[in-house]
Design a protein around this nucleic acid. Structure first.
Lengths: 134, 134
DNA sequence: CTAGGACCTGTAGCGGCTACAGGTTCAAGG
DNA sequence: CCTTGAACCTGTAGCCGCTACAGGTCCTAG
């Protein structure tokens, strides 16, 4: 890895914060372009690969699926309409909010059930009862 | 399905609200005991199967994993300690709350990014910039 | 007796990785 | 120059919790 601007997969992994296996996986599914290779067959990445990979990682952190990220990357390359991007992002925001609502419902139900447990110290368990019974 | 108390898998599915394929999957992974069969090989379920399946479904609705549900079912059968059940439920509640916190973070970041988009109507897209750049 | 719905088994696929096994290459130290 | 051993390679299988087939058999109402 002497020098030049080329990065080995290990270096790319460290700089991008994306696991090596995951990088190869992204290549396999066509999300990250296959880089040139050394004579021995090792992958040699450029700064553009790094940028793209960071883009993917940030997208994942925001909860976009890989397919959505693929679309976003497509919009980056062509002349994007900002409106398209915004539409995708808003749809995704709705998804996230729906998931939050689901989890909050779970949280409420579970907390309520557990609370009943603390009230009475009897032998029957209200948590199991709630799951089994009514 | 003439009568008796035995349920075919279709009936069990309707009454439990669990998909037929999923019921067979639960049997395969040992979560729901294999029922007796008709002469022709069709599964014939009892009311206890139905109860157990409803228990599983409720557990899933509360976000427990199948392994956690397996444990809870184990606690139902033996002489359970209510404390054990409560401990599991509380741990699970923590998980749910952590997931909610994650999603809220995503929601905030995404909403903030989208908001910047609405402010300025220029050609560059702040959403893509945020993913790519800094 | 026939039609067609309900059931059967077995296998493969989803998303997004992760974890091997069993090999090759690279770069630094002696 | 040679050896070590870390880093890399390919390919495959596993994780979770289902879901969706394909290609059959069974059951029951008319």
């Amino acid at each position: 890895m002497r020098v030049g601007r080329e990065l080995t997969i290990g270096t790319l992994s460290r700089r991008s914060g994306v696991n090596i296996e995951t990088i190869r996986y992204y290549e396999r599914i066509g999300l990250l372009p296959a880089p040139p290779r050394s004579q021995g067959g090792h992958r040699l990445y450029s700064g553009e690969h790094l940028e793209r990979l960071v883009f993917i990682r940030r997208g994942r952190e925001l909860g976009f699926t890989l397919d959505e990220i693929r679309d976003l990357l497509g919009l980056m390359v062509g002349k994007h309409t900002c409106g398209e991007v915004q539409t995708m992002a808003l749809a995704h925001l709705d998804d996230i909010r729906a998931k939050i609502a689901d989890l909050r419902r779970m949280e409420r139900m579970l907390a309520a059930t557990i609370a009943r447990c603390q009230g009475g110290g009897r032998s029957e368990c209200p948590i199991l009862d709630a799951l089994a019974g009514g």
